[in-house]
């Protein structure tokens, strides 16, 4: 963290902001401000350099061609790796999650290298797209309540030994590998297939990112009434037959 403010970087809104995931930025920004923190939000377009001194980097989902372009430009830029080396927290969704891994399959059907910041490898599933509400249990080491989100992808992501699954699905596909895992993390880098946006549905994950960035164990409480109401409704709706 810089001397005065929490620097939240929104990576490539021109390419990876198609599925409402900028909500994740808004939630982090809001919840940090509610704790009295100054927040500097930095939106970085794909023709601009990634700053290396951010505290939290957020990357969203995007369509297949923009994903290819984004990964090419991020690999060329190198800023996100340097930010990671500087201890930044990175949280990514869907196409962004795949880009943080070793490789993924792009819109041309080719295997394309990612940034390798998460020990995961993604391909494309044979089955139809996974679309719908997801309910999952968060990895027990994180000590967080159930994960609720909306998935819309055809990806299959396999985890390597240094990545832990973010959650285990009860309903939905998650990583699409059939082993029940959803997302991945390694301590400072997080990836998930969940939209919703995921931090609006799971504000305590947003708080976790802030705590990791500030290196603190707790944050002052905020009014979570509406988040709780939404979570209750989505979890109930996912577990009840339509």
């Amino acid at each position: 963290m810089s001397d005065t403010s929490l620097r939240v970087v929104w990576v490539y809104p021109d390419l990876l902001s198609t599925y409402g995931d900028q909500g994740n930025v808004l939630v982090v920004e809001r919840r940090a401000q509610q704790r009295g923190l100054d927040v500097q939000r930095i939106d970085v377009r794909s023709d601009q350099q990634i700053p290396t001194s951010g505290d939290i980097y957020l990357i969203g989902g995007g369509e297949d061609r923009p994903q290819r372009l984004a990964s090419e430009r991020l690999v060329r830029d190198g800023g996100l790796e340097r930010a990671h080396d500087n201890g930044a927290i990175i949280f990514s969704v869907c196409a962004g999650y795949q880009i943080l891994g070793h490789e993924f399959v792009n819109d041309l059907g080719e295997r394309q290298p990612g940034l390798g910041l998460l020990d995961v490898t993604s391909g494309r599933g044979e089955d139809e797209r996974c679309v719908g509400d997801v309910l999952a249990d968060m990895d027990e080491r994180l000590g967080l309540p159930q994960l609720t989100g909306f998935e819309n992808h055809q990806g299959v992501t396999h985890l390597g030994p240094t990545a832990r699954p973010l959650a285990r699905v009860r309903l939905g596909k998650g990583n699409g590998t059939g082993d029940g895992t959803e997302g991945a993390y390694n301590g400072t880098v997080f990836g998930t297939y969940m939209h919703g946006p995921v931090l609006a549905r799971n504000p305590l994950i947003g708080d976790l990112l802030i705590k990791l960035a500030l290196d603190v164990n707790a944050l002052p409480p905020v009014d979570d009434r509406w988040y709780e109401a939404l979570r209750g409704e989505r979890i109930a709706s996912a577990t009840q037959p339509a």
Partner: peptide
């Protein structure tokens, strides 16, 4: 459409 994420845009 069954995804409400667009509200955040």
């Amino acid at each position: 459409g069954t995804d409400t994420s667009w509200l955040w845009d």
